[in-house]
């Protein structure tokens, strides 16, 4: 890893040790609080957008290093950081970007427009200069700004005039709002006329950062399992001395290590879309597998929130649903692997 990223990694680790590690359950279950969000912003974690090579988009490498390390302790904090950066990467209004970057405001993007069918995520239309209607599955619905797709295909930034509905069930990332929103707003600006295409591009750019979060979660939860297996005894032996548990976790850690190397190789180069999808697909699957095994190693205690394991089990699944769609990605991936778009009977 390049030196600047090593320094960044060290910064996040220090931040975790000071503010996250002893607070991670609260950060998962309750609203993060303005003070904590401000601390994240002060570290510069919210202002990695606009730092890409051409001054647009996010510095994916730096962002991914931050996300991986935040997710080791608190996946919800990593996801919040990703959402803010993703939002800022396409907003040109300096006042809004500044307010989001310094943590005084927040913004979200309705990727659900791509994750469920066109007719399943509500409807927003412009009528008499106002956007009116509802959006169904808005992750980050408690934000101050929202970027969303209109029925007409335009991608818009809504700056006010929307409210969150009743919260949906929350499998994971419970401190981040997730509900429908009702919109009646004249306070908006158009980001792109070809909104779906732009949203697709933003979704593609999530691949490496989402993989980074999944990898960080795998590292965090497997470390807890390794630590526990060294001190917990059953039948007069440490858990680490039982072949089934030891082999399971060793196999998954091997997979994680290989993926991590691949991840860092990709960060050092310019990953292709196919490589980024390979990584995301495998990293999300690993996070689900490794959190199940780690919970199993903890037995009944793993089932209780106090041990900080069950949240990884929930979050691993939530991540693979809220910011990812398996079928959509596999269709794309299969097309790239076959080097031709498949018809899929």
């Amino acid at each position: 890893m390049e030196e600047e990223y090593e320094i960044l990694e060290s910064t996040v680790k220090d931040f975790n040790a000071k503010y996250v590690d002893n607070n991670s359950l609260k950060l998962e279950n309750e609203a993060m609080g303005k003070e904590f969000v401000k601390m994240l912003a002060d570290q510069g974690f919210f202002s990695m957008a606009g730092q890409g090579e051409d001054g647009k988009g996010a510095d994916i490498k730096a962002l991914s290093v931050v996300l991986e390390n935040l997710a080791k302790s608190a996946p919800a904090v990593a996801v919040k950081t990703l959402m803010i950066n993703s939002f800022s990467s396409v907003v040109n209004e300096k006042g809004i970007v500044d307010s989001v970057s310094n943590g005084s405001k927040s913004g979200t993007v309705t990727f659900s427009d791509l994750l469920v069918g066109k007719d399943q995520n509500g409807s927003l239309r412009v009528e008499g200069g106002r956007i009116k209607g509802e959006k169904e599955f808005v992750f980050g619905s408690d934000s101050d700004f929202v970027i969303t797709l209109l029925d007409s295909g335009e991608l818009v930034l809504i700056k006010s005039g929307f409210s969150a509905g009743k919260r949906h069930k929350k499998l994971g990332f419970r401190s981040i709002g997730f509900s429908s929103i009702t919109v009646d707003s004249a306070d908006f600006s158009i980001i792109s006329k070809d909104g779906r295409k732009m949203l697709e591009r933003m979704y593609e750019e999530l691949s490496i950062p989402v993989a980074a979060i999944a990898l960080g979660m795998s590292e965090g939860v497997s470390q807890k399992a390794l630590d526990y297996a060294k001190v917990r005894t059953a039948f007069g032996h440490y858990l680490k001395d039982f072949q089934p548990l030891a082999f399971d976790i060793a196999s998954l850690v091997a997979e994680m290590d290989i993926l991590k190397r691949y991840f860092h190789d990709l960060l050092a180069a310019t990953p292709s879309e196919k490589e980024a999808l390979f990584l995301k697909h495998k990293a999300l699957t690993l996070a689900k597998d490794i959190s199940r095994t780690s919970l199993q190693i903890h037995g009944g205690y793993g089932y209780l929130e106090d041990f900080g394991i069950e949240k990884f089990y929930r979050d691993a699944m939530a991540l693979s649903v809220l910011l990812h769609n398996e079928e959509k990605d596999m269709e794309k991936l299969a097309g790239l692997v076959f080097d031709a778009r498949a018809g899929f009977v």
Partner: peptide
């Protein structure tokens, strides 16, 4: 995994 956001909600 298959029901996506419909499963989550």
């Amino acid at each position: 995994e298959l029901m996506s956001l419909h499963g989550l909600t």
